[in-house]
């Protein structure tokens, strides 16, 4: 457990200094843990666990857009779980439930615990449709068609810088829309 969290911290340090591959590995590594915790939280609140994937995506977006609030000298896991807890409470509240989120939901996860079947997330996909055309096109190109920034730039006759800006703005407004929603 401690070892795993040290790995996360090291990956996040690399990610903050611009290592996209380390960042990708980190997000892949934390996702099953977040998913298991989200399912536990939903079950505890008497909610259907098939909404867990929406919560996971909500957490991942927040982690991404707030990553500058992580102190590189501090361990990564407490920061991650604070964001995750906040997002879980928020989404349960929006569903009109009294909320009891146990800190342990995020603290102890059995190592090898895999999430067998995963319900599809619908909220991000739905909000994607309400983004400005350019942002939506760029997001879809990179997310769904797994095109690189370079290829996306070529496809839409944009500069790579403009693609990056559209990508970043798209993610930010997606998060804002999820919050209002």
């Amino acid at each position: 457990m401690r070892e795993r969290e040290d790995d996360w911290t090291a990956l996040m340090r690399a990610a903050i200094s611009g290592d996209g591959a380390a960042y990708h590995r980190l997000l892949k590594a934390v996702t099953p843990v977040l998913r298991a915790a989200a399912k536990r939280g939903l079950a505890r609140a008497g909610q259907p666990v098939d909404q867990s994937e929406d919560i996971v995506q909500d957490i991942l977006l927040a982690v991404h857009l707030k990553r500058h609030t992580w102190d590189a000298n501090a361990p990564f896991a407490p920061w991650l779980f604070a964001i995750a807890r906040n997002k879980l409470i928020d989404s349960l509240r929006r569903r009109g439930r009294r909320v009891f989120v146990n800190i342990d939901d995020f603290a102890e996860v059995l190592p090898g615990e895999a999430a067998p079947e995963t319900a599809p997330a619908t909220e991000v996909a739905a909000q994607l449709q309400s983004l400005p055309v350019r942002q939506r096109q760029v997001l879809q190109s990179i997310a769904v068609e797994s095109a690189s920034i370079k290829d996306t730039a070529k496809k839409f006759a944009m500069s790579e810088g403009a693609v990056r800006v559209a990508l970043h703005r798209g993610l930010a407004s997606l998060t804002a829309k999820l919050r209002e929603h």
Partner: peptide, 9 residues
């Protein structure tokens, strides 16, 4: 989504 986030670093 993860791939997209990793592209925005």
């Amino acid at each position: 989504l993860i791939r997209t986030l990793a592209a925005d670093t």
